[in-house]
């Protein structure tokens, strides 16, 4: 993304964000409440109500700004939601089949679902349930990883994937992401408030988002610094 400005309800929240993620890289964007983290996630995915007013988002050379969400997804972007919602009566298999209507791979969606569920410890019985219905917070996040594994997008955005997760669940989510970066070269933007994600998920680059701008970028050493000083040093 280059010089990304985005507003919500007419108020600009992102004031020019630059970020480049290559295949196989993990970037963690950290920031305090109100820094624009969720707006960044939704600007990338094109959520209605989040408007990109300036700048561009390109994925493998394809401009995403102006595209509806579903076309961005088909172009290769995946968003793991902070709070995956319930969709009563709709199964995972239906959704993923509709998500890739041109996919005619020999391995069926149902088969891949079972493999992915096993890989992340998502109870196979949940596969036949309606999407996220009667699932705990941790199970919902695992469910997002199952979908990621079936769809195998080139890039994904994780919006507060660590919120509401116990250490075990966070660990298995992080392992899945890391293996995906190797398996198919998944490029990752993980957005979080807490540094505990850094403990679980090995990042190539860390960015600090504050008041709608990236104010610091560095390697894992930046995490150490944040651990001791907090965000206070970056407040504007």
């Amino acid at each position: 993304m280059r010089n990304l400005h985005a507003s919500v309800a007419g108020r600009e929240v992102l004031h020019g964000v630059d970020l480049e993620v290559r295949s196989g890289e993990v970037h963690i964007v950290m920031g305090p409440n109100g820094s624009g983290k969720s707006t960044l996630a939704h600007a990338l995915m094109g959520r209605p109500g989040t408007t990109v007013t300036e700048g561009s988002i390109t994925l493998d050379g394809v401009e995403l700004v102006g595209m509806p969400s579903w076309q961005r997804a088909r172009a290769g972007l995946f968003l793991a939601l902070q709070q995956p919602i319930e969709v009563p009566g709709v199964s995972l298999e239906e959704v993923l089949t509709e998500a890739q209507p041109e996919d005619h791979s020999r391995v069926s969606v149902a088969e891949r679902l079972r493999e992915e569920a096993a890989a992340i410890g998502f109870d196979e019985r949940f596969l036949s349930r309606a999407l996220n219905v009667d699932l705990s917070g941790g199970e919902r996040k695992r469910n997002e990883m199952v979908q990621l594994g079936v769809l195998r997008p080139p890039f994904c955005v994780l919006d507060e994937i660590d919120s509401g997760l116990d250490v075990d669940a966070l660990g298995s989510v992080a392992r899945r992401i890391e293996s995906a970066t190797v398996q198919w070269g998944l490029g990752v933007v993980a957005i979080t408030h807490f540094s505990r994600l850094l403990v679980e998920l090995r990042a190539d680059t860390i960015h600090v988002l504050s008041a709608g701008r990236i104010v610091a970028t560095g390697g894992p050493e930046l995490a150490q610094e944040l651990e001791t000083t907090g965000y206070a040093g970056y407040a504007r």
């Binding site: 995915m45 969400s69 997804a73 969709v87 009563p88 009566g89 709709v90 959704v95 999407l131």
Partner: peptide, 23 residues
Amino acid sequence: YYLESRGVAPDRAERLIVAGFFA
């Protein structure tokens, strides 16, 4: 939005949700 963020076209997403409503 959730279904569309997976790549489901809007008309198909609506159909799934309405079918789910009755399921």
